[in-house]
């Protein structure tokens, strides 16, 4: 399977990564090697009798009851805000 420069650019964009042209070049080759290696490996396996795995955890139904607990103090929560005002997180203006 061939990985193109455009694939890497698109993935970087989706992941909000800023890559230099050199990095894109290098990652394109690396990614192709990784993908092809894994695909070849996987293709060696006989999966005829293997059910698709829907989830990695072998357990189910871990729940909490619908009970309210005390939330954090706002000051505590806002400590993680790069910028804050009027009890809110401030972010660069987003317009839909």
């Amino acid at each position: 399977m061939a990985i193109t420069k455009e694939d890497i650019e698109r993935l970087a964009d989706l992941a909000r990564l800023n890559l230099t042209p050199e990095e894109i070049e290098k990652l394109t080759g690396d990614m192709e090697t990784i993908i092809n290696y894994s695909m070849n490996k996987l293709n060696e396996l006989n999966t005829d009798d293997v059910l698709p795995m829907e989830h990695v955890l072998p357990i189910s139904n871990v729940f909490r009851e619908d009970i309210c607990e005390k939330s954090f103090d706002r000051e505590e929560i806002l400590k993680n805000a790069p910028e804050k005002a009027e009890g809110c997180f401030l972010v660069p203006k987003v317009v839909e």
């Binding site: 619908d66 009970i67 706002r74």
Partner: peptide, 21 residues
């Protein structure tokens, strides 16, 4: 009464960021 993955209240209209963890 509480949120989907934590115990914070779902009540509408609290002061901003006071129903958070």
């Amino acid at each position: 009464r509480s949120k989907i993955y934590c115990g914070c209240t779902t009540e509408f209209g609290g002061e901003p960021n006071t129903h958070c963890c």
